[in-house]
């Protein structure tokens, strides 16, 4: 009998340990995501009724290096590094990426990063030219603004290796971008990420009123159309 009791205690202990570990990893979830538990007749709570139960939990934002999951907390240098929230204080916010609007931060003068490695007085070569790319699909057309790009980058970063500087010379589609080509060389890696929240950052020019979606070839060939 004593052994049986020991087994149950071990089982209970392990379950508690596991629950603790889970709670520690998901402790950062928002309170608003959790529904108040509804107590049934016997006081049981059904886990099936939690709000948005199949959605990913909101992850904690801008954690300091020792807690961020890629820095080793056992390393002394990790604790010397600056926590991101200290640096991001007061900068314009967005809902994705670093949760900082870097372009606005620069244009509104919150930041003044150097354009030259040693000389802080060098001014960037800014070109203000918007390129409109008509999109076949029904999403708004793409406007590419050269201004914010030239504020951060140099012409040679994109031209001619990534984009040929010539009209209609570049085949761009979302598949290529998502796989890290064309715009995806930066966007989706270091500059603002490609999420459902950020579509409108590029797809920003509404279609003309008389725009109709193009007919697919199957539709055109259909004799009973």
């Amino acid at each position: 009998m004593k052994k049986i009791n020991f087994a149950t205690i071990v089982a209970a202990g392990l379950v508690c340990f596991a629950a603790g570990a889970l709670a520690a990893t998901e402790g950062a979830t928002k309170d608003s995501m959790q529904l108040k538990p509804v107590k049934g007749e016997e006081g049981k709570v059904s886990a099936a009724n939690t709000f948005n139960r199949l959605l990913k939990k909101d992850k904690a934002r801008n954690l300091p290096p020792p807690e961020d999951g890629i820095h080793d907390a056992d390393n002394e240098g990790t604790h010397v590094l600056q926590p991101p929230l200290v640096a991001f204080e007061g900068l314009p916010k967005t809902d994705f990426g670093n949760y900082v609007d870097w372009v606005q931060s620069l244009q509104k003068g919150f930041l003044n990063p150097r354009y030259d490695r040693v000389d802080p007085t060098v001014e960037p070569l800014v070109m203000d030219l918007d390129i409109v790319r008509e999109v076949k699909a029904s999403v708004p057309d793409v406007v590419f603004p050269h201004k914010p790009h030239t504020q951060w980058l140099h012409c040679s970063n994109c031209h001619p290796a990534i984009f040929i500087p010539q009209k209609n010379a570049n085949q761009i589609n979302m598949s290529a971008i998502l796989l890290g080509q064309k715009c995806g060389v930066c966007h989706g890696k270091v500059s603002f990420p490609i999420t459902t929240l950020s579509c409108k950052k590029c797809h920003s020019k509404p279609k003309p009123d008389d725009w109709k979606p193009p007919l697919s070839s199957a539709s055109v060939k259909n004799p009973w159309r």
Partner: peptide, 9 residues
Amino acid sequence: QSSTAEYAD
């Protein structure tokens, strides 16, 4: 463990 490091680290 889902990592919560800063974007573009």
